[in-house]
Every structure is written in C-alpha cells, then in structure tokens.
C-alpha cells in the first residue's frame, strides 16, 4: 500500500534558490543562488555545519517556508507561488516528514499518531486504520505495539512510528531532518538501515544531517556551506 512503482523522473528541481532574512537593517543571506535537482528514487543527504543554510534549504524543500528568489518544483508542481492552505495540501499529499525530536502526539496511541495526517481527508475510519497498520508494518513496527501510547516507546520505536506516519499519504519524497539526532549510535544505525530499505523499495529520501557517518548511508551527498553548494558527490561505495 505504501510502495510505489519506481519510474525515473525529476522529483525535486531547484533553480537559483535564494533566501534572505531581513531583520532591521541587517540582511542575512541563508541561501545564495542554489540550483540542483533530485531524481525519483534517489537517497540524498544534505550535509553541512550549523549556520550553513541546510535547515533553510530543508524548510523550503519541505514547503514549510518559501524562497526569497528562485523557483522550486516538487513532482512537477511549482511550490514557490503557493499560499498557506495550498502549501498545507502539498505537504499532506507529497511530503512525509521525519523530525529529530520525533514529534509524536504525547499520550496518544501509535495508531492514532500514524493516522494524524489523514484527519479531515476524505477517508473512512476503517480505511485510515488499515492504511496506518500497513505503514507501521512497512516501517518495521511490531503489531503488539500499535495500541501503546507514544510516550511508552523507546527512541528507535518512536522514530519508526514517525517514519510510518511520513509514509501514510504515499508521499513523493520523505524529508528527514536530523532523524538520528536524538538517538544513540546503535539505534541510529538501525533507523538509517530502515531508511535504506525504504529507498530500496523505491522511495525518494532527502536526509538533512551534520554527521558524516549518517550521510554515508545515502547514495548522494550534497554538502552546503555559507549558503552555497560546496560539493555534490555520488557515493561510490554504494
């Protein structure tokens, strides 16, 4: 249910993206004329130190923020011109988020957390539940934990739930923002393996991180510094 057919075409296309923050007289250039594209089925890590502009880039890719200049196409749709509600719609239909802080609803069952993006959509309760269960199984969550409360889970389990949630609308891309930032090394490896598996099943994944070892799980690494792309390397190991 959450898998889709791999078919090569451009998923993300950025043309001359700039983001300038204005506070008083101070201008901060967070992104400076960045252009790149990501094909369907790629596993890309965007890496850079803090202040490099990678978070800004991630916000723009995630339709959480709009660029000051330039164009951004997601799955063929121009994003930079959309209003707030259209952006919400786009996030729901095309983007699955995995956050560093997991961001699960507290005191809420695993199942309900995964169903959250389906709220107010045109689906029955039964459909929502079926899809959530399928995605949880797909993300490697044991069925016995489906009705556990989110705060009773370990960090690794929480991130699996978050991954299942990101898959629920069968998104065009999965955007993971420092997904291992709150996890120990061993759990990080497990979660990254899970992302690799998803990628092998055909999902396009964009990973934001500042750790070289985490970026090594991806097949392509874009490193960014001072708002410009420093390097864009295919990972030859893979």
């Amino acid at each position: 249910m959450c898998a889709f057919v791999a078919r090569y075409h451009t998923m993300i296309e950025c043309k001359n993206l700039s983001k300038i923050y204005q506070s008083g007289d101070m201008q901060t250039v967070a992104l400076n004329d960045v252009s790149f594209s990501i094909e369907k089925g790629e596993f890309v890590a965007i890496i850079g130190p803090s202040g490099s502009g990678k978070s800004t880039l991630m916000h723009i890719l995630g339709a959480l923020d709009s660029p000051t200049k330039g164009e951004y196409f997601l799955d063929g749709q121009e994003v930079s011109k959309l209003d707030d509600d259209e952006l919400s719609q786009l996030r729901r239909d095309k983007i699955g988020f995995v956050f560093q802080a997991f961001n699960l609803l507290p005191r809420t069952t695993v199942l309900r957390n995964v169903m959250l993006p389906l709220l107010y959509s045109d689906t029955t309760d039964q459909q929502r539940e079926d899809r959530a269960k399928a995605c949880l199984a797909y993300a490697g969550m044991e069925e016995s934990k489906f009705l556990n409360l989110s705060n009773q889970l370990s960090g690794g389990q929480m991130q699996r739930v978050a991954i299942a949630r990101s898959l629920i609308n069968n998104p065009a891309i999965i955007l993971a923002d420092e997904p291992t930032g709150n996890l120990d090394t061993k759990t990080s490896q497990v979660v990254m393996k899970a992302f690799q598996e998803l990628n092998q099943k055909g999902h396009t994944i964009v990973l934001i991180t500042h750790e070289q070892e985490i970026a090594a799980f991806a097949e392509r690494v874009i490193s960014i510094r001072d708002g410009i792309i420093e390097s864009d390397i295919k990972n030859t190991k893979k």
């Binding site: 707030d84 983007i95 961001n103 609803l105 959250l116 993006p117 709220l119 107010y120």
Partner: peptide, 14 residues
C-alpha cells in the same frame, strides 16, 4: 502540537 499538525498538512482553518 499545532506545529506538527500544520507540518503534516492539516489546514489552518481545521
């Protein structure tokens, strides 16, 4: 919680 709801694509009005 509101931030999360917005991020996963729930409209502001809802």
């Amino acid at each position: 919680e509101i931030g999360l709801r917005k991020a996963v694509g729930i409209k502001k009005a809802y």
